[in-house]
Design a protein around this nucleic acid. Structure first.
Lengths: 84, 84
DNA sequence: TAGTTATTTAGACAAATATCTAAATATTAA
DNA sequence: TTAATATTTAGATATTTGTCTAAATAACTA
């Protein structure tokens, strides 16, 4: 839960998640969308990955990232228990 | 959205929110539940308040805090748009 | 009014975080 | 094999954050 909130507590990472909602993208494509260096984006991707929010798959010299929405179930439930 | 994620990105603050889910409590009662100084708890309450997650009402010399679940609607929607 | 209790504000400090550049690693192509 | 491209790792640095103690503010009580 901690790593999930931590991962989402950054505007850039939330935007990455929103990008990956539309379609899978490789690290370079993701980096292009931001005015941030590639190493920094790589670091953000690592944090999202540790939180299980995204998965990665090596495809040749590229690394393709995908959104993993199943982990959001936990977050959803946490919020719902507060609301009822 | 930023202040909301920021507010929830701390275990102590999430626990405060969970406490207030059960019943309204004043600052002292909340502080008793943690091994953290009262000023620190006060600071956490301030962050939760700025995020609109809680409201406060002065009652004599006490300050009573309540959970505001309506702001969670935004968070819920943000997550739901990712899932579908 | 003076003392006590409840809470917040101020200021300091250590730890965590986001960012950068430079270098390393891995893969493809000539 | 050498060069080029994609990505990550390493190390540095400035900013943010969570915590503390001491002091300030506010409200009750004797």
């Amino acid at each position: 839960m901690n790593s999930l909130f931590k991962a989402l507590n950054d505007e850039t990472r939330r935007q990455i998640v929103e990008l990956l909602k539309e379609k899978d993208m490789n690290a370079g494509e993701i980096a292009e969308r931001f005015n941030i260096s590639k190493p920094s984006i790589s670091h953000h991707l690592d944090i999202l990955k540790r939180a299980d929010l995204i998965t990665s798959e090596k495809k040749g010299q590229f690394v393709e990232y995908s959104l993993n929405t199943s982990i959001l179930e936990d977050l959803l439930n946490w919020i719902l228990t507060l609301k009822k």
